[in-house]
Simulated assay, not measured.
Amino acid sequence: MTSGSVARLLPWVSPEGKPCYLVSDDGTGYLSRFADEVEATQLDMADELIDHAADMLADLTATPEQLRYLVARMVESLRDVSRVAESRGDRLPGAGS
């Protein structure tokens, strides 16, 4: 990495489940913009999932299978949102010092 380069945690993992990073100088390239779009989509999906979970919890006829499926999707979404938060926190001024 050059002195102005920053390693950004990307909002997806490798096929092996390992974190992916992008090293860039200014964070304005195509892949950086694409990662920003993916993050925004992940956060929007989390908001929708929260609304869906509230609806299902209010529905007393929801089956255990439906609730297990909901929890599985919530775990996936929480992992995504956690990765977005970590990535954004790493990019805050002074975070690397």
Rank of each mutant, 00 (worst) to 15 (best):
G4C: 05
L22F: 12
T28G: 15
S5P: 04
V84T: 03
L60H: 09
G27T: 04
S24K: 11
L67V: 07
G89L: 15
F34G: 13
T41W: 12
Q66G: 11
A40T: 11
E76Q: 08
W12K: 13
L9C: 00
D80C: 08
D44A: 14
Q66N: 04
S5V: 03
P64F: 04
A7T: 01
V81T: 14
E39P: 01
D55A: 06
S3M: 03
P11D: 01
D80G: 01
R33W: 05
R88M: 00
P93L: 14
T61L: 00
S5M: 15
S87R: 04
L67G: 02
V23Y: 10
D51E: 13
A54K: 05
G4A: 09
L57S: 05
T2Q: 12
D36H: 07
T41M: 06
R8L: 06
L22K: 15
E65V: 13
D44K: 14
R33I: 09
L31K: 04
M45H: 05
L22V: 08
Y21W: 10
R79Y: 05
A58E: 10
V81A: 15
D25H: 04
D59L: 15
K18V: 00
V38Q: 05
G89A: 10
T2F: 15
A53F: 10
S32W: 12
A35Q: 01
F34L: 12
Y69I: 06
K18A: 01
V81G: 02
S24P: 10
V75F: 03
D36G: 07
E76P: 02
G29E: 10
V81M: 05
A54E: 15
P64E: 08
R83H: 02
L9M: 02
T61I: 00
L9I: 01
V75I: 05
S14W: 08
L60F: 13
E65W: 04
S77F: 01
L43M: 10
T28L: 13
E16L: 12
E37K: 12
